[in-house]
Design a protein around this nucleic acid. Structure first.
Lengths: 122, 122
DNA sequence: TGACCTGGTCACACCGAGGTAACCGGAGAA
DNA sequence: TTCTCCGGTTACCTCGGTGTGACCAGGTCA
């Protein structure tokens, strides 16, 4: 009952709740290129709303994955940067991303087959 | 513009939308032990509702990660089993799960520090 | 006869993630 | 003077994922 899968899944689920959302990994991947300012991120991810960018960055900052540096100049300047923890996340994330890239076609194929088999009766 | 991060993130996001939900990975991890019947899964994951178990299994089946075998006996018997694709997903998932287990404390610590620093002003 | 097992489906309600848009404050530009 | 930029915050609304509970068919058991 206390097999590793179970424990792993709990921690994994907790982490997924955080980084598995719509934006976190996208932001992390952009930030992986180097530090960025708020509006720089916004320009690189045009589809994100200002609110969600703020919220997601706060969440990542809260988790210690991203650091936030405010320069009290005029106009104010805020830089976001991956922390070491954030950097270390890239490796396993890339592993999963590679799986995703390698298997996304198989998934789409399976979906098409499934939809063809089950969708026609509608 | 067409850097690997971007493409990886797209496929990754698509995969996350599927397996990043509340139940998929839990079911996959249980199914990793071997084939299970519907109510077996329900007993091993007491907190899941019948509806969500059905829906999640359908989704996993649609993606070709899980196979569904109906034995038309009385009472009917339905076995669920990981496909090869489902098995192959375990490796990168475990990598991420291991990261989660290794860093969940660091995350909690960062969260506490963040909450202590920002929560007091409320 | 009626309760219960099997594996589901359906209708309904809820809640929280996410989007939209307005507003802020201070400064420079037109 | 008014507009714009920067980095947000806030109120409001929508929408989809999730939970609840009823219901289904067919057979067995008490």
């Amino acid at each position: 009952m206390h097999d590793p899968n179970s424990f792993g899944c709990r921690a994994f689920t907790a982490v997924l709740q955080r980084i598995g959302d719509k934006w976190s990994l996208l932001i992390v991947s952009v930030l992986a290129e180097g530090p960025k300012r708020f509006n720089e991120l916004r320009r690189e991810i045009p589809s994100i709303s200002q609110r969600m960018l703020t919220l997601t960055l706060r969440g990542l900052e809260r988790d210690g994955l991203v650091s936030r540096t405010v320069t009290p100049s005029i106009p104010p300047r805020v830089d976001y940067e991956l922390t070491e923890l954030g950097q270390s996340l890239r490796k396993p994330v890339c592993a999963l991303a590679e799986w995703a890239m390698a298997n996304i076609d198989a998934i789409h194929t399976a979906q098409s087959r499934f939809d063809r088999a089950n969708g026609e009766k509608v």
